[in-house]
Design a binder for these strands. Structure first.
Lengths: 156, 156
DNA sequence: ATTATTAAAGATAATTTAGTCTTAAATATT
DNA sequence: AATATTTAAGACTAAATTATCTTTAATAAT
């Protein structure tokens, strides 16, 4: 598995919040996100705290509280979410797990893997949350196993 | 992390055995592999049993016993080792972990990820154990944190 | 002020992965 | 036959990840 579950949930939640942002509803309660995406509320809270700690999101307590992005979703790249939760080791690590593997001291697999690893990094780097959220809305794609973007928006 | 530790260790061990195979020493004891690669003997034993169960390796007990590939390392692709240990889910799974995500029912990330995922699969599919072992020997590359292919061969 | 709502923080539990230890089975050597 | 060597198998332990539960802190509405 490329990304941890925490990171996957974090991305799904980010896409939900980004979609709401486009609907002119930048602040959403975590409970709403966890209900809609069928994720554990407490687990998701901890994950989102990592995004807040990283400065990607801001949060307010109390009634009408919730979370929101600190910047426009069009200016937030997917790699920022990944970085805040799983870190960037994924884009540095040797595929054989050898410490110090790199251009100077390559493992047998280094050259081939470095190319692929870069392609993955570029992909996360080049994709904004807004891009994904818009695409999801346009194509009525799914954000959880059972629920499409359309479902989410009409029951919001 | 793309591959589990078990899978990483399995690949390292496979490269070691492939290198020995080229030295006309197809059968090597597991203890030798675990010593040279600085891996836990018992843990490695279990991993190699998976390769044996998958038909990639054969084993003999008793003095002068050990493990060896059932086919020539040049005919064994890296993906076979990965498949035997981690399975092929990696090459099928949605990057957001959504069940059923695919061409018909894509998640917002599907198209971009599918391309990258295929590149990874092709890479594992196109690389033989012999190719990696030979390259490692030629370039004196490392198979464990501290030990190069040359070190391994001269102290064998 | 009191109450209700919401995120933060911390304790605990469950699951998966990683790793160790012990015993059994097979086989070669003597 | 007895012994030593080696893989196989199973029980057990440790660590990391995932998930739940409880309490606290902040804030808005009444």
């Amino acid at each position: 598995m490329l990304l941890s579950k925490a990171c996957i949930y974090g991305i799904r939640a980010s896409l939900y919040v980004a979609a709401m942002h486009e609907q002119k509803r930048p602040f959403v309660p975590i409970r709403e996100v966890s209900d809609k995406l069928e994720l554990s509320f407490h687990f998701l809270t901890k994950i989102l705290q990592q995004l807040t700690a990283a400065g990607l999101m801001k949060s307010y307590k109390g009634p009408n509280g919730g979370i929101a992005f600190t910047r426009e979703p069009k200016d937030i790249k997917l790699i920022e979410v990944v970085s805040a939760i799983d870190g960037l080791d994924l884009f540095k690590e040797c595929v054989l797990g050898l410490p110090g593997c790199g251009h100077k001291q390559p493992c047998p697999f280094h050259d081939k893997w470095a190319t692929t690893r870069e392609a993955i990094e570029i992909m996360f780097n080049a994709t904004s949350l807004e891009e994904l959220a818009t695409k999801g809305k346009r194509m009525n794609l799914r954000l959880s196993a059972e629920i499409t973007m359309d479902d989410l928006l009409k029951t919001a």
